[in-house]
Design a protein around this nucleic acid. Structure first.
Lengths: 133, 133
DNA sequence: CATCTGTACTATGTGTTATAGTACACATAG
DNA sequence: CTATGTGTACTATAACACATAGTACAGATG
């Protein structure tokens, strides 16, 4: 599979699935139209309860990452305009604030923090390029 | 107080206190040696249970943000070398990865993302400067 | 001694997570 | 048509985290 879950982590399993799928989509390991494993298939493969996988799929559909067709399966959705763009941008700013605070405690300057951001983003851009179809 | 809590948020109250104190320290609203309100004082002021505040203080002491002196009170700790620096750096990289993925879904380029980071960090640097003692 | 500190402990209620099992509506292949 | 595979809905259970309430203890201070 394009991701793996760890039941020992505090992060809920269904959110690990959600993030795993979103990451695979962002890296173009999964592309629009691709079919995801069925709820029962994925549950069997990862020895999880089908309900847990279903919960993840419902969250992914709610956020328009995947599309569900009754009786057919779930598919990666095509990119579409985002309705709650402002809220999500605000959440990103808040996350960056947390990074800024954490950097202080690691005795990093703002320059150090921005350098880390540059390097990490560049790394993930390369990752995406390598996996692209 | 230098922060406020919202019981309606999904984030646990004790973690809201933890982050509030850390933010106040990062912005130098609180400085090393400053005394924090007692468990009972803060609980009364924010209409919380003293146990909740105590849990926050214990987490803050565990991460060396504050120092506790039995019978005297809690005080902002002086900056000290960080033991688990590697883990915390790795966690920051993971957070940046999440930002990168979220940016994709908001149809932002990596350049857009880095610009947002620059702007947000600069904003918080200004915030810190204004509050400095 | 009286009063303030943080801490420890039990108990209760609530909400989330994950599991198990059953059942239903829809789509498709034979 | 039947059989099978989709997602979904529902009940029930167990485990855990969170928050509250109340009591009690050890250390520091005036």
């Amino acid at each position: 599979m394009w991701f793996q879950i760890d039941p020992r982590l505090s992060k809920p399993i269904y959110l690990q699935i959600v993030d795993g799928v979103k990451e695979a989509c962002a890296k173009h390991i999964l592309n629009p139209g691709d079919r995801l494993p069925s709820v029962r298939e994925l549950a069997a493969e990862m020895t999880l309860n089908p309900n847990t996988v279903a919960k993840a799929y419902q969250e992914l559909e709610r956020t328009h990452v995947i599309e569900v067709i009754r009786g057919r399966g779930t598919f990666v959705a095509a990119p579409s305009p985002v309705p709650d763009k402002e809220q999500r941008l605000a959440a990103m700013r808040d996350t960056i604030k947390h990074l800024w605070i954490e950097a202080q405690y690691l005795q990093m300057t703002s320059h150090d923090l921005l350098a880390l951001m540059h390097a990490t983003v560049a790394e993930w851009d390369r990752e995406r390029g390598r996996e692209r179809v």
